[in-house]
């Protein structure tokens, strides 16, 4: 199975941070000619708040943090792992012209609702790749002896990513609508700043969870890869090759972060509250019947 572009942007935290938070509105004055009349027009545009890091710098920093915080097999060293994972991400980013274009477009002057458009792009892309990500995790489960609960938690994180993007989309829509009708640039700036301060904490919380998830995934992979060439897709993920206490600790940290971001989303947006559909679904029926059985029956059932 090939690794598509979704692998880089499965978790959209870096792109979102860059697109939504690290921009500030600034006023610029342009000379505009209406017929024979020249006049000055003041416009508001969005500029980065700090020197722009390259994507490579951003990913290298993330990977450095990850591989310095977990134990690694003797056959690898930290810098090799950082390089291997960074190179892969950068390659996929460079091939992803649509995303690069979208990030650039966010800073354009003439773009209507730049934040909302950018988040909608990210959400749409995330949604489109959802089935591929699920298939990838299903395949990894079948080529492993790890329990299905492990992959279920990863799928739950995927569900949470989607809820998170929905929330961000909704928030940017509301604020940009208000900003559009602001009386002056001072008001515009204030509304955009309010939006950023509302989104900041939740993006930070999401970052923490995405980091914990990526770290856990990488931990499982590096202990099952024999060479750096295997890091993309180890043949088999064997739980016996993993130090269980560290795995459990990383898993626990991930679950705690997942719990925190879900709670934050639930408190901010009741639309996140999902329900099981009433429409007949043989899988849900089967799971429901299993859940209705006593634990003893289930333990002796296979």
């Amino acid at each position: 199975m090939s690794l598509g572009t979704s692998q880089v942007f499965s978790y959209p935290q870096n792109s979102l941070r860059f697109g939504l938070l690290d921009l500030k509105p600034v006023e610029i004055t342009e000379d505009v000619k209406f017929g024979n009349v020249r006049c000055k027009v003041t416009k508001t545009k969005l500029e980065p708040t700090k020197p722009v890091s390259t994507f490579e710098e951003l990913v290298t920093a993330d990977n450095n943090m990850i591989f310095n915080s977990i134990s690694i097999p003797e056959r690898f060293n930290v810098s090799d792992l950082v390089k291997a994972f960074t190179d892969r991400s950068v390659k996929l980013f460079e091939e992803d012209k649509a995303l690069q274009q979208e990030i650039e477009n966010t800073k354009r002057l003439d773009r209507n609702r730049p934040f909302y458009t950018f988040v909608s792009f990210m959400k749409q892309r995330f949604e489109k790749e959802r089935d591929n990500r699920l298939a990838l995790d299903a395949k990894r489960f079948l080529m492993s002896n790890l329990p299905l609960t492990f992959y279920n938690q990863l799928t739950r994180f995927d569900n949470t990513c989607y809820d998170f993007l929905k929330f961000i989309q909704n928030t940017t829509r509301i604020y940009e609508y208000r900003a559009k009708y602001s009386r002056n640039s001072k008001m515009f700036t204030k509304i955009i700043k309010n939006m950023q301060s509302e989104l900041g904490p939740i993006i930070n919380k999401f970052d923490e969870c995405a980091y914990a998830c990526t770290r856990l995934r990488r931990y499982v992979i590096i202990w099952n890869a024999d060479t750096t060439g295997d890091l993309n897709w180890p043949k088999f993920l064997d739980i016996k090759k993993i130090e269980i206490s560290e795995f459990e600790q990383l898993n626990q940290e991930f679950n705690t972060k997942l719990h925190e971001i879900r709670l934050m989303l639930l408190n901010d947006d009741t639309e996140v509250l999902c329900k099981i559909s009433n429409t007949p679904n043989s899988t849900v029926n089967m799971i429901g019947n299993l859940l209705g059985m006593s634990s003893a029956t289930l333990n002796g059932g296979s």
């Binding site: 992959y151 279920n152 799928t155 995927d158 569900n159 999902c274 899988t283 799971i287 859940l291």
Partner: peptide, 10 residues
């Protein structure tokens, strides 16, 4: 299974 059980767990 993953699609459905993850929603149930949520």
């Amino acid at each position: 299974v993953l699609l459905n059980i993850s929603t149930i767990a949520d």
